[in-house]
């Protein structure tokens, strides 16, 4: 088999996943796109391992390790998404703009944490004002 077939398929899958990461708005769909990119890398590893006929089988061993790390990553990622959804009421990555460096104040009332205390909110709102004066 020509090596270009699996390599080109892996490249196209990676770019489809890249498009999904950039365009999706739901955090779980972003995680799905990250899985597509990881699978493209796995296909590359397997194809090059079969091509090189490595005696250590580094490609296939690394593929197994990548699959394991991807499983750990999806578990941690989903736990973080659930935590964000519980605290903010949304899993929309466009609305989680607390760390954005925009001068205009976003609509922070709709995404304010539901379990905050007032002192923390006051400190959060006082912080950018102090940064602008400094």
């Amino acid at each position: 088999m020509h090596l270009a077939y699996p390599a080109v398929l892996a490249v196209l899958l990676f770019c489809v996943g890249l498009y999904g990461v950039l365009v999706r708005r739901n955090a779980i769909l972003v995680l799905i796109s990250v899985e597509l990119m990881l699978n493209a890398v796995n296909l590359n590893l397997v194809a090059f391992d079969v091509w090189l006929r490595d005696t250590l089988h580094a490609g296939q061993a690394l593929t197994l390790f990548t699959i394991t790390i991807a499983a750990a990553e999806i578990g941690i990622g989903l736990a973080i998404v659930l935590l964000v959804h519980r605290n903010r009421g949304t899993s929309d990555v466009d609305k989680l703009t607390d760390l954005a460096e925009t001068g205009t104040e976003p609509d922070s009332a709709s995404i304010a944490p539901t379990t905050d205390n007032t002192a923390e909110t006051a400190a959060d709102q006082a912080l950018p004002a102090g940064g602008q004066t400094a």
């Binding site: 020509h2 270009a4 490249v11 770019c15």
Partner: peptide, 20 residues
């Protein structure tokens, strides 16, 4: 990204063959 990578990959592995 797809165009660049496909161009590079096809150019690099044009004559490479996997023996299955």
């Amino acid at each position: 990204a797809a165009a660049t990578l496909v161009w590079v990959v096809v150019d690099a592995f044009r004559s490479t063959w996997i023996d299955l």
